[in-house]
Design a protein around this nucleic acid. Structure first.
Lengths: 101, 101
DNA sequence: TCTTAACATGCCTGTCTGGTTATATGCCTG
DNA sequence: CAGGCATATAACCAGACAGGCATGTTAAGA
């Protein structure tokens, strides 16, 4: 579990996931959209892949990456242990977040 | 959001939260139960406190720490953006299992 | 006031890690 | 099969960070 959090505890990896959340992407598309170097993107993708957050398939010269749901489900499960601590505050928080946007 | 994940991406901090999940604790109790040095515990508690995961109150010479729910609620909120990904996954799995039968 | 208890903080060090540059690998086209 | 893409990997560097030790701070008690 700590490994999953460590993987997400990095801003550029989170940005990669945000992009993949919309649709699967090739490495080059991520490089263009995130404005970071190709080796940096590849290294982050490797970390994400080894943690199970993404998977890749080969299409000609490209590697297409997409999100895998399991680690998210595991995080949800872990959070459930703490849910009783906050669900009495959840309504207030959501009102707050809704007011933000 | 990335800050919260980075805070949880450390094994000993996660262990501290596991202990505080049961009941609030003084620093000394955490030192005894986790078998780590007092400065190390205090440093982790500072990180957790500045990220909002815990708060402390003073009782005589002791500082009693307890979990605060808001960061957990924010993580839940963040995860909800990805929930549909594994909802679809579970739906697909169920259809798969149904077809097996 | 002096001492002790319970924590917090500063400093130092070794380790880990994210980024860059350079290079290797695999695929496709001519 | 030569050459160009798309991506992965290797080697290196600089900054971040966890842990240990020593010390500062505050409160309680004699």
């Amino acid at each position: 579990m700590v490994g999953a959090f460590a993987v997400l505890g990095e801003a550029n990896r989170l940005r990669i996931l945000e992009h993949l959340r919309g649709s699967e992407c090739s490495v080059g598309e991520l490089v263009d959209r995130l404005g970071m170097s190709q080796p940096a993107v590849s290294k982050h993708l490797r970390v994400l892949r080894e943690a199970g957050f993404v998977s890749s398939r080969i299409a000609a010269q490209q590697r297409i990456y997409r999100i895998e749901p399991e680690p998210f489900a595991e995080m949800e499960h872990w959070l459930a242990q703490y849910r009783r601590l906050w669900d009495r505050h959840l309504d207030a928080l959501e009102r707050h977040l809704d007011n933000q946007e």
